[in-house]
Simulated scan of single mutants.
Amino acid sequence: MRILVAGGTGVIGSRVVPLLTAAGHDVIATSRSADRLLPALAAGAERAVMDARDAASVDSAVDSARPDAIIHLLTDLATEDFVGNSHLRIVGTRNLVAAAERAGVTRMVAESIAWVGEPDAEPGDESVTFARDPDTDESLFPAVESLENAVLSLENGVVLRMGMLYGRGTWFGRGGRIHDRAEEGTVVATVRHTSFVHVDDAALAVVKALDWPSGIVNIVDDDPVDAEEWAPELVWAAGGDETRLAVRATGRASTNARAAELGWVPEHPTWRDGPFDLV
């Protein structure tokens, strides 16, 4: 296939692009910066400079690429700008879906997040109700819901609800924001009830999802855990000492039975094996 990877230079996209080219696909990777696309070129992909917030830019990239499928991995979290990232989820997704519809592209695989369910200590499946509790970040969940609804409006839209990403290049990896704070003993957990997924496993799920039926699939490991348990392990792995834990929201962990039915089995079934694969 010809596959447009929107966000082909991010922590997942930079892994997905070489997996796709190695499998024989024609890949077009996008970024707002041409320089950031050099690794994608080295992996055998074409490059397209695209600003997802600009509808004309998205239309031009999709029209030029003539893709059979689009992979949506757009994020804006380099500076922890959660409001900007939420804006990108809404506007960027709307522009990408509209361009796909105009170009006759019906297949899209999009990255979402797994901790969207109403707070509960029991891990949930893909049918969980979106959180409406004041314990949640008001700017986060409406944007995620908007992204998911837009992608699922396509005939072959697949939404991957990713767990907390860890591994090289993530915030949990060495040099990442969460890791650096953990070195000093401080952990700020997004949610108390947590599901993780190794970033390499997440990338493999994206590639597999090109053949999956439309719908939502949780991409998480086999080991949901409470922040009070994983935070001290992260601090220890990062070389810190006493743990000072703050939790933003209760949240909810997720199950991965649906992904297993579709043939995705994580090579890192638990975050404990690393722990957190910091190198």
Rank of each mutant, 00 (worst) to 15 (best):
A99L: 03
D120H: 15
R174N: 14
A65P: 05
L165R: 10
L20R: 01
G8N: 06
L262I: 07
A131F: 02
V191H: 13
R102N: 07
A260E: 09
I90N: 03
D222R: 06
A189P: 08
A114C: 13
V144S: 08
E228P: 00
H25Y: 00
P266Y: 00
A231Y: 01
P18N: 12
F130V: 15
R258Q: 06
Y166R: 02
D76F: 05
A103K: 02
P269T: 02
A69R: 07
S195N: 13
S195R: 10
E261W: 03
I3K: 01
V158K: 10
E229T: 15
R94K: 06
L152K: 09
L77P: 04
L210E: 03
D226H: 14
G84Y: 10
N218A: 11
D226F: 09
M108F: 12
D241E: 14
T194V: 09
T9G: 00
T190C: 05
A42V: 12
G167A: 07
V220D: 10
L147F: 07
A238K: 00
L37S: 08
S146P: 00
D51L: 02
V206I: 07
D68G: 15
A143G: 05
R53Q: 06
G157S: 06
V217C: 03
A231E: 01
E148S: 13
A55V: 13
T136P: 03
W115L: 13
L73T: 12
A257C: 03
R36D: 09
T250L: 15
V5T: 05
D68M: 02
I113P: 06
V5H: 01
P123R: 03
A150P: 04
T190M: 14
K208R: 11
R168M: 08
L204M: 07
D120V: 01
V206Q: 01
R15P: 07
G173D: 14
A143N: 00
A150K: 07
T194A: 12
D180C: 01
A189V: 07
L19D: 00
S127Q: 14
G84M: 08
V199A: 12
R132E: 07
T186Y: 13
T243E: 05
P269N: 00
G84C: 09
E46G: 15
N218V: 08
S86A: 15
G44R: 01
S33K: 08
A22V: 08
V105H: 06
S254H: 12
P266Q: 04
D221V: 06
R192I: 05
R15D: 04
A78K: 09
D63A: 15
E145S: 09
V187C: 06
P67N: 04
A40L: 07
V62F: 04
A110I: 07
V49M: 01
T30W: 03
P275V: 12
G185A: 09
R181A: 13
R36A: 14
V128K: 01
V265K: 11
G44T: 05
A238D: 04
E183K: 15
I70M: 14
T190L: 13
W230T: 11
